[in-house]
């Protein structure tokens, strides 16, 4: 699998809500591998990559959270100045729209691991591969 699963969770922007979601995942032995939050003053969307998406989906639903799963791409870039820029330039040069991106909490190797979200994921993967940008599969990215 060239893509990995990202879980997006709707949360109200209130005190302790983020702690509740993370606590729920923790209690169920689900590890957060990467995380970012998009927010407005009233609500936010918590986007996470987890080591057990299926279990998370079930647990979140049972606890009344609304969640959506989307495919994202995990890309390795060299953890040196300009490393990320190089990968992004490939996308820009090939007219690939990157919706958003964020970093993994820990590294799988010496390189930095980034999560990239595209509207056209297949085309993006194709371009990245042709330009020798290293895409990491879920086994490596999630340390499974």
């Amino acid at each position: 699998m060239k893509t990995i699963s990202q879980v997006s969770i709707f949360i109200e922007n209130t005190k302790g809500r983020l702690a509740n979601v993370c606590g729920l995942l923790g209690d169920n032995n689900i590890n957060i591998k990467a995380l970012t939050i998009a927010e407005t003053p009233e609500f936010g969307i918590l986007r996470v990559v987890l080591n057990d998406t299926e279990k998370a989906k079930k647990v979140l639903k049972e606890n009344g959270f609304i969640a959506k799963i989307a495919p994202v791409v995990a890309v390795e870039v060299s953890d040196t100045p300009g490393g990320l820029a190089k990968a992004l330039k490939v996308l820009a040069d090939n007219d690939i729209n990157l919706e958003y991106m964020y970093g993994f909490v820990e590294k799988a190797s010496e390189k930095a691991l980034m999560v990239l979200k595209f509207d056209n994921v297949e085309k993006a993967i194709d371009i990245l591969q042709k330009n020798n940008v290293s895409i990491v599969d879920d086994k490596v990215a999630l340390g499974l």
Partner: peptide
């Protein structure tokens, strides 16, 4: 209440 049918992970769409 946000419903599964209209929840998207894009902030703009929710707005």
């Amino acid at each position: 209440e946000v419903d599964e049918k209209f929840f998207t992970d894009e902030l703009q769409a929710l707005e």
